[in-house]
Nucleic acid binder design. Structure first.
Length: 273
DNA sequence: AACTATACCTGCAAGC
DNA sequence: TGCTTGCAGGTATAGT
């Protein structure tokens, strides 16, 4: 579900609830998530620990701890986070809960169980899966030069390359489709075939799409919810994603759908070369 | 080494 | 109406 704009929206919404709060208890209701929840470590590290910051890296949220480590959360496809009164009854999809001071509880709800909950006690070492993430698409390390360099000699479709979190961290299927449309590039183009002008158009397109989505609070297609239960409104601005057969907003050609990297791929056959 | 397909899990919509 | 099928924003992995 949540790509960078959704995760960042969640981060901003949770910030005032989490930062400064102390975790008093951890309730693991489902151990089997995307990876097994490290219950022992959570119980050892979290109770009594104060949350000093809430950061995002790619699609991961990091609740930084007073002791130097962090609680790591990833929402998978259908995960949502919210803060509620601690005594509120659980639903069957509430997987993990963190009781906080002031009788509040942070809850991870996830129908499909693709979420990740992890925690590390010290600033070092940073877990391998975080270390290998590529640059932030809105950060200054993400440049046209960088794109050209990592695409160099690559034959795989540019769409697949952009979904690869070690190349750039935070893009998912929605925003990759949208960015390629905005840049006028066909998703199946070999990554290495992009010329310099195309790479810098792509770079700008990625940034613009992400910024617009952030402004709208992300896209709610099926499940995504902000921590207060509300929806992101960027779905209304989608040009190609999920719009098979509908008119391209730029040229009115019908949007076409294909499959790339096992995922639905949407493009305008006229605007994207 | 680079890359793709598959598996993981559940709910829902579309098609019959 | 009810059943079956395919698809869904995620990534790790097994396999080519």
């Amino acid at each position: 579900m949540p790509e960078l704009p959704e995760v960042e929206t969640v981060r901003r919404a949770l910030l005032p609830h989490l930062v400064g709060a102390t975790v008093t208890a951890v309730v693991v209701r489902t151990e089997r998530l995307r990876r097994p929840v490290p219950c022992e470590r959570l119980q050892k590290v979290l109770p009594g620990n104060r949350i000093t910051g809430l950061e995002r890296r790619g699609k991961y949220l990091l609740a930084e701890l007073e002791t130097g480590g962090a609680l790591v959360l990833h929402l998978g496809m259908t995960g949502t986070l919210r803060v509620c009164p601690a005594p509120e009854p659980f639903t069957p999809w509430d997987r993990v809960a963190w009781t906080l001071t002031a009788r509040r509880q942070l809850r991870l709800q996830d129908v499909r169980r693709f979420s990740i909950v992890d925690c590390f006690p010290q600033p070092e070492p940073i877990p391998e899966y975080l270390k290998r993430l590529g640059p932030e698409p809105l950060g200054k390390r993400f440049t046209a030069d960088y794109l050209i360099r990592v695409f160099q000699g690559r034959v795989r479709p540019v769409k697949n390359a952009l979904l690869d979190q070690t190349i750039v961290a935070g893009l998912g299927n929605i925003y990759v489709n949208e960015a390629l449309f905005a840049a006028g590039i066909r998703p199946e183009r070999p990554a290495g075939s992009l010329r310099r002008g195309e790479a810098s158009r792509l770079l700008r397109a990625i940034r613009n799409v992400l910024r617009a989505a952030l402004e709208a609070g992300g896209s709610t297609i099926h499940d995504f919810r902000l921590p207060d239960g509300s929806e992101g409104s960027f779905a209304q601005q989608l040009a190609v994603y999920g719009r098979t057969g509908k008119a391209c907003p730029r040229c009115k050609h019908p949007i076409r759908q294909s499959r790339l990297g096992g995922r639905g791929t949407f493009f305008c056959p006229n605007c994207q070369k």
